[in-house]
């Protein structure tokens, strides 16, 4: 299928989906259905300079386009200018996202992959470039607008945001500026209380004893 034909087909599906407000099923299941109809390989709908950049060696659980998508989302979603927060480029955000995705079962992971691909590519119709090439200000506007959009748009933006946010804020390095204490029991030297004593049961038989 050539690029133009793909574009037309995806655009039609997208428009139809937007009109109905839901596809075959809500959420990522619907995303999978749409991408299946679109014959899959539309990641190359519009080339990006980032396609030439190989992902790092550790990114074995992400496709190259997924890696670039999350790396761009990290920069877009986690600006620290004007705060004392830690620069997200110094935190393994995308590595953590990859780890979370590793926990997904295969069918869900496949559906999510389809959804991410759709998110990256469908922006071509509104902005003339893929998400990974969208200027940060425009990308933020896109997230905000989609947060008010259809079920599918809300699903994709929520999933991407949650993954990136978790990937950043789970790192202990990000905690001190917020005064978040993190784990405290060992730091405070709290004693282990062990198992609770057996209840006093009147029906305990004679001869039984508690060790």
């Amino acid at each position: 299928m050539n690029s133009q034909l793909q574009a037309t087909q995806i655009s039609k599906i997208w428009q139809r989906g937007m009109a109905r407000r839901q596809f075959l099923k809500w959420g990522l299941g619907g995303v999978a259905a749409v991408t299946a109809v679109a014959a899959g390989s539309f990641a190359l709908l519009r080339r990006s300079p980032r396609d030439e950049i190989a992902p790092p060696d550790w990114a074995t659980g992400l496709s190259a386009s997924e890696y670039h998508l999350f790396e761009h989302a990290r920069a877009v979603l986690l600006p620290v200018e004007g705060t004392n927060l830690i620069d997200s480029s110094t935190v393994p955000v995308v590595q953590n996202v990859q780890q979370i995705l590793d926990y997904l079962d295969a069918p869900t992971r496949k559906e999510l992959g389809a959804g991410l691909s759709l998110f990256d590519n469908v922006v071509v119709f509104s902005h003339g470039c893929r998400f990974v090439d969208l200027e940060p200000g425009k990308a933020r506007e896109l997230f905000d607008r989609w947060g008010e959009g259809s079920v599918l748009q809300r699903t994709l933006t929520t999933v991407i945001k949650q993954l990136v946010y978790s990937g950043y804020w789970q790192e202990p390095a990000t905690w001190p500026p917020t005064e978040f204490d993190g784990p405290v029991s060992e730091k405070w030297g709290l004693a282990y209380l062990g198992n609770a004593p057996l209840p006093q049961q009147p029906s305990l038989e004679s001869g039984q004893e508690q060790a």
């Binding site: 600006p79 004007g82 927060l85 933020r140 947060g147 946010y165 917020t178």
Partner: peptide, 9 residues
């Protein structure tokens, strides 16, 4: 998205 969220955090 972006700065408002990071300010909130």
């Amino acid at each position: 998205t972006g700065k408002p969220f990071m300010d909130y955090m």
